[in-house]
Design a protein around this nucleic acid. Sequence first.
RNA 1: GGUCCCGUAGCUCAGUUGGAUAGAGCAACUGCCUUCUAAGCAGUAGGUCUUUGGUUCGAAUCCAAACGGGAUCACCA
Length: 592
Amino acid sequence: MTTESIIKEDIKKAILAQFELSVEDIVLQPTKKEFEGFYTFVSFALSKSIRKAPAEIGQLIGAYLLEHSTIVSDFNVVQGFLNISLKDTVWLQTIDQISKNAHFGSSEPNGASVMVEFSSPNTNKPLHLGHLRNNFLGDSLAKILETSGYQVVKTCLVNDRGIHICKSMLAYQYLGNGETPETAQLKGDHLAGKYYVLFDKEYKTQIKDLIAQGKTPEEAAKQAPWMQEAQKLLRLWEQGDKETVDLWHKMNGWVYAGFNETYTKIGVEFDKTYYESDTYLLGKDIIEEGLEKGVFFKKDDQSVWVDLTAEGLDEKLVLRGDGTSVYITQDLGTTELKYSEYHSNRYLWVVGNEQDYHFKVLFAILKRLGRTYAQECHHISYGMVDLPTGKMKSREGTVVDADDLVAQMIQTAADRTQELGKIEDFQSEEAKLLYHQLALGALKYFLLKVDPKKRMLFNPEESIDFQGHTGPFIQYTYARIRSIGRKAVATSIQGAIPAAGYSLHPAERELIFFLSQYPQKVKAAAEEFAPSIISLYAFELAKVYNQFYAEVSIFADPNPESVQFRIALSAAVAKTIQHALGLLGIDAPERM
RNA sequence: GGUCCCGUAGCUCAGUUGGAUAGAGCAACUGCCUUCUAAGCAGUAGGUCUUUGGUUCGAAUCCAAACGGGAUCACCA
C-alpha cells in the first residue's frame, strides 16, 4: 500500500467518523510549493452534503488524522484546502523501499501484448524531422509499455511501392547515367530523394508547357509525358516486368542501406518490418467477407463502398471499380495479417494527425466486421513539426533533413563540450560517444517534451538548446550524481538509509516525495500514450536534485549519517533519472 | 462549406482532467565557482489564459457563439 492510498483511507475514515458520510473516491493533489505540506485534500465539494463551511470540514478531518492516522505528522487548513504533512519515518521508509528496488518504475509482466507500428517511411526520400518525431515517439512508447508490463512488438510498414516510387525510378532512368551511392558519394536514400526532386522539377516544366499550349491545369497534370510514363512504369512493376523490378530492387536496396544507417545512428530498431509491396494485395478477401455480411455494398460500376454515416463519417470507397485496392483496403489486410501472425492484445499506430479520419474509418470498419481486437486499436495521433515558414514539404525542399540535423547536433555538442573543457582526459572514441549521446539527448528531448497530440514548431535558426529545459540538463544532473558516487567509492563511504529518528532536511524530503511519484508517472504515460509525461517528470526531478545539490553539502556534513544518507539518496535519484531517460531512448553519460 | 484539432509571458512549452496568488525554459537584467561538475543555483522583470456570454461555492480547464490558425473531406498513400 502506498502512502498516498493510506492517506486516502484515513481521510475516508475521518469523514465517516466526523460526519457519518461514506465517500467513494478521495482525490489528493500535491500541495503547492508556497504552502506547508505534501498532499492536499480539497473539501469544497463536501460542503454541500455536510452543510458545514469547507474550512471547518478541513479542520475536523485534519484533527482526526492527527489523532488517528499513523503517518500524518501535521496539517494546516487554508479555506477549503487541507494540507497534510507526513512523519519523517514515512519518508524514510519510502526512500528505503525505493533504494532497495532494483526495478523501481518498472512493473511485472501483465500477460498482455501490444504491437506498435511507427516510422513507416517512403522509399523515395530520406527521413526528415517529422519522421524523427514519429520514430522517437514510437520507440519511447514501446519502451514505456514494455516497462509497464506489456510484451511489445515494434513494427515498421515500409511504403516501398506506388506511383511516387516510380517517379524517382523514372527520373533515374532518364537522368541517372548509372549513378550509384558510391559514385555519387551520397547515402542511398538521399540519392533516391534527389531523383524524386528531379522528377518533380521536370514534371512541373512539362505541365507549364502544356498549359502554354492551351490545356487546363488538370489536363496538363494528367497528360504530362513523365506522369504518363510513371504510370506506365507502375503497371510494368505490377506485371512483374523484369527490368522495372530490377531497377526497383536496386534503388530500394540503396534506400534501405541509407535508412539503416540513420536508424542505427538514432538508436531505433524494429522487431518486424512489413513491406507494402508484400501487403498491397491483401484485404480483398476482407472486402468479400464484408460484402457477404452486408457491411459493404457494391455500386453499379462494381466499386465497393461502406456507409459510415451512422458513425458520423461518410461513405467511403474500399475497393476500386477495377478491383484494385486503395489505402484502406491494404490497411484492413495488413491489420488482419498482424493479428494472424502475432495475436497481440492491442495495436497502436503512431501516425500523424493528418490521418485522423483514415483511422476513424479503419477502426469503424473493423468494428462492423466484428473483429474483437477492434476495441484495442489506437491511433497515436501526433502533431506535425512546423517550421517558422510553415509546413515542411519534401518536394519543395523545405524539409529539415534528419541526417543533417543529427550531424549538426553532434557538432554543437562537441563544440559546447570542448568549450567547457571538462573531459580533456577522454580518449577520442569516448569523446565521440559522449557527443553522440548529448546530441541525441538534446534532439530526442526536444521532440518528446511536447504533448504528442500538439503540433510543434522547430526553428532552424535557433539551434536546439543544451541548457535549461533540455535533455543535456538532465544528463548533466546524472553525471553530477555519478561523480558523487565515484567519490564515495574512492573514500570508502557506503550509502545508507538512516534509522528512524533521523530528522530530514526539507530538501531531502522534497526529493523523496518526487521520487515516490515516479511509478504513477510511468503509469500515466502508458495510459495516455504520452512520453511527454516522462520527459517533464525527469526534468523536474533533475531540477529538484540540483536545488538539493546547491543547498546541502554531501561530504562536508558533520553528521556521518547525513553523508551516508545523501549518497544513497543521490544514487536513488540517479537510478530514477537513468530509468526515465531510458524510456525516452536517451543515454545517461557517466561524465560530461 | 461539413467534420476534427488548436489559441496560455516577447519566443518555445507545462498546467495533475473544475480548485489556492496561472508555472517552467529561452531571451533581458542582478548575484553566486579556492569546497561534491557553474551544461548549475538564487533572484528581478514579464499575463485581460484570443473575445463575449453561460454553467457554480470556484473556470485557462466544462457548454455556446464569434474571431484567428491548422488538418481533413481522392477510385493518392
